[in-house]
Amino acid sequence: MEQQHSPASILEFLQIVGNLKTTKRTGWVRHGVPQPESIADHMHRMGVLAMLIQDPSLDRTRCVKMAIVHDIAESIAGDITPNCGVSKEEKFRLEQEGINKLCSLLAPTSLAETEIRALWHEYEDAATPEALFVKDLDKFEMIVQAFEYEKANPKLGPLNDFFKSTKGVFRHPQVRGWVDQLYRNREAQLGYKVE
């Protein structure tokens, strides 16, 4: 029989994970986007995107779950971007500490503890087709959001940094098709090209 989580530890877990709802995404804050999305906003739309998979070779349920937990450690570590002056190794260490703290609140070897930890590591290691797909979704969701901010806030001008950082990195053909359509829409509606 699976170990039960204590009600107190579940409430603490939920309180920490709740930080994702109020922590604004760093890239948007740095670019002066008014009312930027939270980490939870980003993770939610990634989960919805993962439901749109039309590739029978991928485990759709695993992709949805991975999208839901891929940034969960940021509830403790915060949203560290490449422009924060933190090395990749230090970022990983901080997020690893975050996932360990979160999982320590769940009953050891429980299904939830094991699954959350495994999904987070699978995403970080980018070693499976599902993890690579979810990494594509992570970048795609970001540029969809950038386009939405460009349309809603013309004074911001083009948010080219976000598009440049992802150009040519998408692997999955379904996501590449979405990206191509996004580029066409952006150029047609705003006159911005991805250089």
Rank of each mutant, 00 (worst) to 15 (best):
R186S: 11
H31Q: 15
V175N: 02
S87T: 15
I76A: 09
S110K: 04
I39S: 08
L14D: 08
R93K: 12
I80C: 11
A127D: 14
G32L: 13
I143N: 04
I116Q: 01
R60H: 05
G27D: 14
I80N: 08
I72S: 07
L190F: 07
H172E: 06
M51G: 12
E2H: 01
E95G: 03
E113D: 03
A67H: 02
V175L: 10
L94F: 10
M142V: 12
L137E: 07
H70V: 09
D136N: 03
D138C: 13
G47A: 14
S165C: 06
H42W: 05
D41R: 00
K24G: 02
V134H: 04
H121N: 10
V175E: 06
M142Y: 00
F140Q: 03
E130I: 06
F13L: 13
A50G: 05
Q174D: 07
I16F: 07
K135H: 08
K193G: 11
V48S: 09
P173N: 10
A40M: 12
C103K: 01
P34C: 13
E150L: 08
D161S: 13
G98D: 07
D79E: 09
G191V: 05
D59I: 01
A112G: 00
T61S: 13
E74H: 01
V134K: 02
K167R: 11
S6D: 08
E74L: 07
V48P: 00
T61V: 12
V144G: 00
L111N: 07
P34I: 14
L14S: 10
D138R: 00
P56Q: 05
E97P: 00
K167E: 15
K65W: 11
T61Q: 12
S87G: 06
P34G: 14
F140N: 05
I16R: 08
F140A: 11
S110V: 03
Q189N: 08
E2F: 04
C63E: 07
V86H: 09
Q54T: 12
L106T: 03
L190Y: 03
P7L: 14
L182Q: 04
D55C: 06
W28K: 02
N160R: 05
R117S: 11
T26D: 13
W28A: 14
E130W: 02
R93E: 14
H31L: 15
E90Q: 13
L190V: 10
V179T: 07
I143V: 15
T61N: 09
A8N: 03
E37K: 07
A107Y: 01
F170L: 15
L58I: 10
K24V: 12
P82K: 06
E2K: 01
H31A: 15
S38V: 10
E90L: 14
I72G: 02
L94P: 00
H121D: 09
M142L: 15
T114E: 09
T114P: 00
D55Y: 05
A50S: 08
F147T: 00
E115I: 01
G157Q: 05
G191R: 01
K24Y: 05
N160H: 10
P34R: 11
G168M: 05
I116Y: 04
L156S: 10
